[in-house]
């Protein structure tokens, strides 16, 4: 078994063999998703709990569909209905779910490191569906799968990630995994959204939009969260769009066949103009499609790992 860990928490410690393995597994599940009957009995009788402490539509639905297509029983718990609001600790909540003989718990939580903290203290398999600003490893895997399917390779490709790098768990997971795969990662965003200590990533940063997109084979646009303005990171969506948004004018400076990706949900007209989002270059819906296959792969190899 190439992947021998109990949990799927981070891309930072994945080897390139492990990433290859995950992508290969996902390819076979991708075929299943194209069938008329999209269900296989791999995880029949297994119980998967989606424990989401942050609102999510896309990721939660993707995990739910993935689990159900594998034949598992999937239960969704969201923070609004959970007992944490009654003062229960995160660990107690998770231990209660574990006590009901759950096989896999998929967790999204607003604190960095919280999913690792849980995984270190329970025996159930834990999947990280996003922990604070830290990581979103399945998103990163689906990004890689989407790129590989279209470009036929990963190594040597130029990827630029644009936006709020500091507050992006997608950026962190992508940076670690892409570096491991031999891709050239470049970052760009307003200085207020570039973390202090960025040299720790060991990647390049661009100093303007043109430099950011010029040689890119892939551009990943990050979502701008509205509450960031209250935190003084940008003055307005209007100005953000003008200086850091991906518009047809900027696209004219990029390679013709550049892929445009976005983890969603898209703020049309802010970080990404509608014309670009709906263009031939956009791979946003491919990402969503591949997300289900990636999550099927992760859930199945974790469940089989016992």
């Amino acid at each position: 078994m190439v992947y021998d860990k109990k949990d799927f928490i981070s891309t930072r410690d994945l080897t390139s063999e492990q990433i290859d393995y995950i992508l290969t597994q996902a390819l076979s599940f991708r075929e299943i998703n194209k069938r008329e009957v999209k269900k296989i009995p791999t995880l029949k009788g297994r119980t998967i709990v989606n424990l989401f402490f942050e609102p999510s539509t896309r990721t939660r639905t993707s995990f739910e569909i993935a689990g159900k297509r594998l034949g598992a029983d999937v239960i969704n718990i969201s923070a609004s209905t959970s007992s944490t609001q009654k003062g229960e600790t995160l660990m107690d909540t998770v231990k209660n779910i574990q006590a009901m003989s759950s096989d896999i718990i998929v967790i999204r939580h607003s604190f960095s490191g919280s999913v690792k903290f849980v995984a270190d203290n329970v025996h159930t398999h834990i999947v990280n569906a996003g922990d604070g600003l830290n990581e979103h490893p399945t998103q990163s895997m689906l990004d890689l799968l989407t790129i590989k399917l279209q470009k036929g390779k990963l190594e040597g490709l130029n990827v630029t990630i644009i936006g709020d790098i500091e507050h992006s768990r997608v950026a962190r997971s992508d940076i670690w995994a892409m570096k491991t795969c031999g891709m050239n990662v470049k970052l760009f965003g307003p200085p207020t959204m570039i973390p202090v200590g960025i040299e720790a990533f060991g990647v390049e940063t661009a100093s303007n939009m043109e430099e950011a997109v010029k040689d890119a084979d892939v551009i990943i646009m990050l979502r701008i969260q509205r509450e960031r303005m209250a935190k003084l990171l940008i003055p307005s969506e209007r100005e953000y769009s003008k200086l850091f948004g991906l518009t047809p004018a900027v696209m004219a400076k990029a390679k013709k066949d550049v892929m445009v990706m976005h983890p969603g949900p898209v703020n049309r007209g802010v970080e990404l103009s509608s014309v670009v989002a709906d263009s031939q270059n956009s791979a946003i819906l491919d990402q969503v499609e591949n997300g289900v296959a990636i999550r099927m792969a992760v859930l199945s190899f974790l469940a089989m790992a016992k």
Partner: peptide
Amino acid sequence: QGNGYMNEGRISAINGLNGIP
């Protein structure tokens, strides 16, 4: 300090914990 939890620098960039300069 904001809602920082640890030193702001190389390590906070890596682990995604909000930094305190």
